[in-house]
Amino acid sequence: MTDHRHGSEPGHGDSAGAAGHAHPTVKTYTGIALLLFAITALEVWFSVAPFLQPPDRRPLMIFLLLAAATIKFAIVVGWFMHLKFDAPVYRRLFVAPLVVTILAEGVVVWLTQIHLRA
């Protein structure tokens, strides 16, 4: 990684000064892939595990599934897409819209569930 001219490497640019970051290596990626596999397996298990099937455990199941999905999402974005290591501007450009989307669309879903005194 000696050639910096084209800015294709992670950590290029404004954040390049933060050389302390350990850039992911192929070995790291393999570990991440295994982790993703494990979480996916866990997710599938959550959705069939007997102790989560009773109706009163549904909220717990949904929480666990959403938590697992969030972790997978964060791992892919953070490591595979280098967002954790790249210039901060990328993070702002992606995370801010993501948050606004979740909030606004969440309110839309909530509002479509309202049927007043029908």
Binding site: S8, H12, D14, A87, Y90, L93, F94, A96, P97, L98
Partner: peptide, 20 residues
């Protein structure tokens, strides 16, 4: 200005749009 390539900046902007 930001020391990052235009193409990549554009692409992250596009991905923010794709989130919506």
């Amino acid at each position: 200005s930001l020391g990052v390539p235009n193409l990549k900046l554009a692409f992250w902007t596009f991905l923010g749009s794709e989130c919506f």
